[in-house]
Amino acid sequence: MLLEVEDLTVAYGDIRALSGVSLALAPGELVSVLGANGAGKTSLLMGILGLVPVRGGRIRFRGADIGRLPPWRRARAGMRLVPERARVFPRLTVAENLKAGRWGLGRNGRAEERVRHLLDLFPVLRGRASQPAATLSGGEQQQLAIARALVSDPALLLVDEVSMGLMPKLADEVFEVLARLNRQEGLSILLVEQNAAASLAISQRAYVLETGACVFAGSASRLREDPRLKAAYLGA
């Protein structure tokens, strides 16, 4: 397993956002975490990176226990976050955003190559290198955030609500890019989403959270066909 989360509990003060959730992700897998607003999806993702207060549980990544490392060290271990609402560095240029994504790799020739490859993948970023990231549209910022996360060639991509605030057509494009990265490059992706239909379409497996606990874990196709779950989570 690339990532193993066991009994993860996240609490903000007295408020428990996640109670004892376990999750596993094999190399090359695209796994979705679904659930309504406030179900604990983002807390799970941020808990894996250590960006929210974790009260219990274990996190193993590439066989090592990373549960006690600060967030940036977890990122260095080979996971990268695509934050909710992109969170690009607004006053830095597109090129500087991508350069920041290379953090820790130094003057590595492969990183340059990687940037070129990413510009092929995200053609909207081409020719915008010296433009401040704040001047990009929402969809473009989301693509920049994904590209920024991918410059370092991570083993695992953690994607938080990538479709939020995007118009459906743009959201579809972003999902398509993620699916392609997963299929063609074997990139492992943990996708936290509210848009269940779109994310299930590209996932192999899925977890469903409800008020901080896991209520379903299984293959994406089974979830798509389960009438009870369909009614509850897919709005069908």
Binding site: W72, A75, R80, V88, P90, R91
Partner: peptide, 10 residues
């Protein structure tokens, strides 16, 4: 600009 995003990229 974005502390969380910065920590998230190492």
């Amino acid at each position: 600009e974005e502390e969380t995003a910065a920590a998230g990229i190492g």
